[in-house]
Design a protein around this nucleic acid. Structure first.
Ligand SMILES: [Fe+3]
Ligand SMILES: [Fe+3]
Length: 892
DNA sequence: AACAAAAAAAAA
């Protein structure tokens, strides 16, 4: 058994013996379990039918066996030079497959079974293959997917190899499985290892990656396995685990409000929701779900942190992960967390907890990049010199940061919800993400912001989280009752709780599921906004009002449902007002221009602005403004949209405390550009007023009910009235869908239910345990399982044609950040319309080759400046697209 | 055609 290599160096015959690598991985698993007692206990709780000691023994045993497939000739012969050096077995015909599939086949091969069967004796006789399947699939699936059964059942193992494997297994069995195990029998047996297998799969990948890294020295000399285990494997494993960033100090015990949230000024006490979190969250044990519904800016995130801390302090979670709907909001949240997350933990001079930023474009976030590998507060070498505060600021262990798949393993994480959803999709290495989430508290922010497909995936994630014994906190503005019901039910399915009926009580509302008990707690409103709502059917009237705001010296926002309508409205306003006073903001800008506009918007409409800066500014925007920008307008006009969006938009009107408001616009007021809210709308309802915006919100019945309700209400008080209005907009019993809008409704509900079933089909099934069956067999086909649905899109990377060649739009540099800042995403057919001639393609390819990513995943599009300064025309022959920094991309 | 939004490299 010492004639087989497991790891090899490139360019030399230096190698690590296979049996040692196997022990390294088991030792790393041992070290991981010892380092995270809370997780260790969770594993035991997930397999209640198995004695804890027996479970530990089995997990370590299968960890040793994870690379069993590397004994096979197919693997060994990849380095014939080392085989020769080791005097390995000759093989003429081999069974060719990846060693993870081979490992499983070898384990169940009849020549091999005899070597382990006596050690796995259980009460009812030999364990059936199905009982162990979740564990074997997790062990042999350490390359990110469960192994497949080989189509060719003949392994063609040379006799010497079979003998070596039997010898190895014999030694491993006597060492790791000393006494007869008592495995469960009867009907429950097949279920026994299914829940724990999800964690085991993730732990094994972590152990394998750690044990394949720098911390483990190659060893080529044969020695007794027990000696290697004690003197090499375990010490190296413990050192490596201590360094990898997965372990963190214990949570702060008994901290009060201001100690846990040091960024909140002393003069502010907890809001009702935060007081609730402090008081209630630590009370129970076991899987818990909290749903906090309140308006944005009411301190929901802090409440969630307090609740998460209570769960951590109770010894039931390691840390937290905050999942958000966009990368931009994630960046913002990361900045907030960086300043305060360490207060949730005890001060320890040995370990600093890692804070992770997890999303696709984090590579250009300097604040995060600078935090990687900084050993502040640890070895004290660098910080003393530059006088930095050693105990503040973000830190992220280098090992965690070098691969996106590892990012959820950090004790504290902020990122897109999509990163978390990938844990319950048959994506490669999903088990890593699931392990990280499962041991943390999952906090999902802005839950109302997702489509039916993604919401359904979130349900699946909640089932997993509960099934793994974990906790989750959902934060949202008004969550329609049916969506809330689905989320709560999904959590109950995983936790084994009875499914309650959630209410549609007014906001703010705290919902809690713990120990099978369901409670809803209405809370006092902290900040309220009373908005006058007027419907208006004439766009000219809306423009007049905006001009009136300008004249009165105030500022306003006009929200359009499509980019083209926003561009058109901007042009109309620019005819009547100084063009410099009219801003345009939508998503069809290169990132650098978009960020500049966003900064300008915040400077004008943000909290720090002044009456003078705000004077006469009119912003025309699309839905980009809905995304968590804290802006305040004196007056707001919006095109009709589904109720929850209208209310969210209305919340942007006079939300800050400002002394001065323009004459005629004192008090929050919103004008909704809407088709008439008639009782019997005819065919084509809304086409005149909303145009192509009707395609953006195809649930025309919801639009109609929204208009009906707003026409009746005239004034709404937020957040109190939000619930009634949102429920009413979706309630076809109270306001039956008019005949002319029925087909639109049918189409929309049909589409939503199709998307939901697709999400159900794509998502993994917790109850199956780790294995191919959990993915309905589609783990191995190439079908895409995305986190969001939608029309196909392409990313355009804008390129400037300059005197001496090509340059990126965002600047002179050719680095990854300048690339990202030059990009804009468009529908695929729009991108396809910008086809390059062969000559241009050659030129663009040559330019792409000089970029860090070689232009993969994007399409380079050249622009050349026209006679009009600032207006650029697409340089490709036959194209009409135009770009400017003020207007963005116009398809022409 | 009509919004915005995310994802994209392993552990030889
Ligand atoms: Fe492997
Ligand atoms: Fe391995």
């Amino acid at each position: 058994m010492y004639h087989y290599w497991g790891k090899a160096a490139k360019g030399s015959t230096a190698h690590h013996l296979l049996v040692y690598h196997c022990l390294d991985v088991a030792a790393t698993l041992r070290a991981l379990l010892d380092a995270d007692k809370r997780l260790h206990q969770r594993l035991h709780a997930l397999a209640p039918a198995v004695a804890p000691a027996d479970l530990d023994a089995l997990l370590l045993y299968f960890a040793v066996l994870h690379d069993l497939g590397k004994f096979a000739p197919a693997f060994q012969q990849q380095r014939q030079d080392i085989v020769d050096k080791l005097d390995g077995p000759p093989a003429k015909r081999i069974c060719n497959a990846h060693h993870s599939h081979l490992g499983k086949a070898i384990f169940f091969d009849e020549d091999i079974v005899v070597a382990w069967q006596p050690s796995l004796l259980c009460r009812d006789g030999w364990p059936h293959k199905d009982i162990l399947a979740p564990l074997t699939d997790a062990a042999f699936g350490h390359h990110g997917k469960p192994p497949q059964d080989l189509s060719d059942s003949n392994l063609r193992l040379p006799p010497s190899t079979a003998a070596a494997i039997r010898q190895f297994m014999g030694e491993v069995c006597s060492r790791f499985l000393p006494g007869p195990l008592t495995l469960p029998g009867g009907d429950a047996a097949n279920q026994a290892f299914r829940p724990v297998s999800w964690f085991f799969a993730g732990l094994l990948v972590v152990a394998d990656w750690l044990a394949s890294g720098q911390g483990f020295a190659y060893c080529e000399t044969p020695m007794d396995l027990a000696v290697y285990w004690n003197e090499r494997a375990l010490p190296q494993a413990r050192a490596t685990v201590a360094d990898c960033g997965m372990v963190s100090p214990l949570p702060r015990q008994g901290g009060g409000f201001h100690e846990l949230l040091p960024h909140i000024e002393q003069k502010y006490g907890p809001t009702p929701l935060q007081a609730y979190a402090l008081e209630v969250a630590g009370r129970d044990s076991g899987p818990r779900l909290f749903i906090f519904e309140d308006v944005t800016g009411a301190g929901k995130t802090e409440a969630a942190l307090l609740a998460a801390h209570a769960v951590m302090a109770g010894g039931e979670a390691h840390g937290f992960y905050i999942g958000l709907p966009t990368m931009a909001t994630a960046n913002g949240m990361y900045a907030r967390m960086a300043a305060s997350y360490r207060a949730l933990f005890m001060d320890a001079d040995t370990v600093v907890p890692s804070l992770m930023l997890a999303h696709g474009a984090r590579g250009i976030q300097d604040a995060f990049l600078h935090s990687i590998g900084l050993e502040r507060g640890r070895d004290g070498e660098s910080d003393a010199a530059d006088g930095e505060q050693p105990d503040s600021g973000a830190f992220c262990a280098a090992w965690l940061a070098d691969n996106r798949k590892k990012s959820l393993l950090a004790p504290c994480g902020v990122g897109t919800l999509d990163q978390a959803l990938l844990a319950v999709l048959p994506a490669k290495h999903q088990c890593l993400r699931l392990l990280g989430l499962g041991r943390n508290v999952l906090i999902a922010d802005e839950v109302h912001a997702y489509d039916p497909y993604t919401t359904r995936l979130l349900e699946t994630l909640l089932t997993f989280q509960a099934g793994l014994g974990g906790c989750a906190i959902l934060l949202s503005a008004t969550l329609p009752r049916r969506i809330k019901q689905g989320l709560a039910a999904a959590f109950c399915r995983g936790a084994g709780y009875p499914v309650p009926a959630v209410s549609a009580d007014p906001l703010p509302l705290a919902t809690r599921l713990a120990n099978g008990v369901f409670t809803e707690t209405p809370l006092a409103q902290t900040r309220t906004l009373s908005v006058a709502v007027t419907l208006c059917h004439d766009p000219a009237e809306a423009l007049d009002r905006l001009v009136a705001v300008h004249t009165a010296g105030g500022c306003a926002i006009l929200l359009c449902n499509t980019v083209d309508r926003a561009m058109a409205a901007r042009n109309l306003l620019a005819e009547r007002l100084p063009p410099a006073d009219v801003l345009l903001f939508h998503a069809r800008f290169a990132l650098c221009d978009r960020l500049a506009i966003e900064e300008r918007v915040l400077a004008i409409f943000g909290k720090g602005s002044t009456t003078e800066i705000r004077r006469g500014k009119i912003l025309v925007a699309t839905q980009v403004i809905e995304q968590s920008l804290d802006v305040d307008a004196d007056f707001l006009v919006t095109e009709l949209a589904p109720m929850e969006l209208v209310l969210q938009r209305a919340g942007r009107c006079q939300r800050h405390n400002r002394k001065w408001r323009p004459a005629g616009f004192v008090g929050p007021a919103v004008l909704v550009l809407s088709p008439p809210a008639v009782d019997e709308p005819g065919p084509g309802w809304g086409e005149a007023e909303l145009g192509k915006g009707l395609f953006v919100y195809p649930g025309h019945d919801v639009l109609w009910r929204t208009a009906q309700l707003l026409a009746r209400w005239e004034r709404v008080e937020l957040p109190r009235d939000a619930r009634e209005l949102v429920e009413g907009a979706y309630d076809a019993d109270a306001l039956p869908t008019p005949a002319a809008l029925q087909s639109a409704e049918d189409k929309q509900t049909g589409k939503a239910s199709a998307e939901k079933s697709l999400a159900l089909f794509n998502g993994l099934e917790f109850s199956q345990g780790y294995g191919t069956d959990a993915a309905a067999g589609h783990w191995h086909d190439d079908r895409e399982t995305p986190t969001r649905l939608g029309e196909e899109r392409v990313t355009l990377r804008l390129v400037r044609v300059v005197d001496d060649g090509l340059a990126l739009w965002a600047g002179e540099g050719l680095d990854a950040a300048t690339c990202a800042r030059s990009e804009v995403s468009v529908p695929k057919h729009r991108g396809d319309a910008l086809a390059a001639t062969d000559a241009w393609q050659e030129r663009l390819d040559a330019f792409a080759a000089t970029l860090p990513d070689k232009g993969r995943w994007v399409r380079l599009v050249p622009f050349v400046e026209t006679e009009t300064a600032g207006v650029w025309h697409c340089a490709l022959p036959g194209t009409t697209a135009v770009y400017s920094r003020e207007g963005g991309l116009n398809y022409g």
